[in-house]
Design a binder for these strands. Sequence first.
DNA 1: GCGACAG
DNA 2: ATCTTGTCGC
Length: 225
Amino acid sequence: MDPDWLQPDNLAAARRAQEAMAASVETEDRLGPVRRLGGADVSTTRFDPERRVWAAIATLDAATLLPLAEAGEAGIARFPYVPGFLGFREVPALVAAWSRLPEKPDLVMVDGHGIAHPRRLGVATHLGLVLDLPTIGVAKSLLVGEVPDLPDIAGAEAPILWRGAVIGVALRLRPRANPVYVSTGHRISLATALAWVKRTATGHRLPAPTRAAHAAAGRLRRGEG
DNA sequence: GCGACAG
DNA sequence: ATCTTGTCGC
């Protein structure tokens, strides 16, 4: 694997790496039976000059949504936060957390975009490519694209349009809460991704896997658990 | 040049 | 992303 996929020296190299990776992204289903679901998220401290990051991956039983295991990694990001380049900041720590999981999830939902990204390389796609794993992007706000206003009911959805193409779906999982933005990460179709997000909705704004990962990353950062 | 800009 | 208590509503 090209080292620039994880640690580019600068923004120009990072952009080249994304363009190279984009050729390998798979937007059709290529996944086996999903018995374990994963959620991935990274917590940080605002304006931290040390660039500390706390990455967590939570594993849930796909049938019951009950927690199975968690793994975390506390590290230093080699990349600053730059919109459009989140993967270079978060993926290395997530890979470290992943390696620590005894039983790997069959599908992982990542906090952030998949191909709903200027170069189709959001953090969810990035992680999927590096680990050769089916991933779904579940973001809380748009990076690119536009969606019409959604009715204020659970289940309301609308395509995310960008440059004349559907790059994802906006989906409201809870009334009076902002929608989540779902897109293909890697090795999964938008339809299948959407079905999994709906299936893991538990009455909150975020689906269960992402929610569990967010909680785990927060606990890790605060030194709990 | 100006505005937008996941986490 | 995070700073932060109580408060309103299901």
